[in-house]
Amino acid sequence: MENPLSAEPLFHIGPVPIAEPVLVTWALMAVLVGLSARATRRLSVHPGKAQALLELVVTTLDAQIRDTMNRDPAPFRALIGGIFLYVLLANWMSLVPGLEPPTAHVETDAALALIVFAATVYHGITGRGLKGYLATFAEPSWVMIPLNLVEQITRTFSLIVRLFGNVMSGVFIVGIVLALAGLFVPIPLMALELLTGAVQAYIFAILATVFIGAAVGDDADRPSIDTPDTQDPPP
């Protein structure tokens, strides 16, 4: 019997097996990049409806990053925004008949968590310096170094397991109900999957923001280019 948790290769490119999540991800990439390139082809200072929607998404994303990290969101915008959009659309792939969300496979979630982990380390070192970043593992005391090291691993795993468990369980439930009850019975569950997918995308993105923000540290004093935080504080 086929293991529903494993990603069976659909074909091979040389020695590299290409599984469904990879194929779906490529399709999502094509769609996302294609729509983005089309939408941003003729941007103007006086926006139309589509541009206004795009700007709303970007400004909301910036506000979320700024509120969480308390610093200029520009260096983190593409990473957090890209992860959010990809996870959101990947989760919603469960609505397409015959397709499984790439995030319902642990490999995809692990890949995303690896990227977050790498970004955490990268921004921590660039923000604090290598010594400063390593010093954060000894906070509040050197006794905490083992626990902080373990935390780096466990929270990355928590990212993987949380997203994988929620999406995979939703797919399983819908599949089971569809097999047992009939064609239209799982529709409410699928609608719930829409909400669950959005929530999980938001949680994954916001946790990534929190992890990276914790790595780079609080930097409220750093001047921001496009944030209202540069205003003088009230007396």
């Binding site: 990439m29 593409a78 925004g81 995303l112 990227i115 496009d226």
Partner: peptide
């Protein structure tokens, strides 16, 4: 894929809009 997607989105979506 995710890294490339993030780079592409930064190139074609976030940077132009920002």
């Amino acid at each position: 894929n995710a890294a490339v997607l993030i780079w592409l989105l930064a190139r074609f979506l976030f940077r132009p809009v920002a």
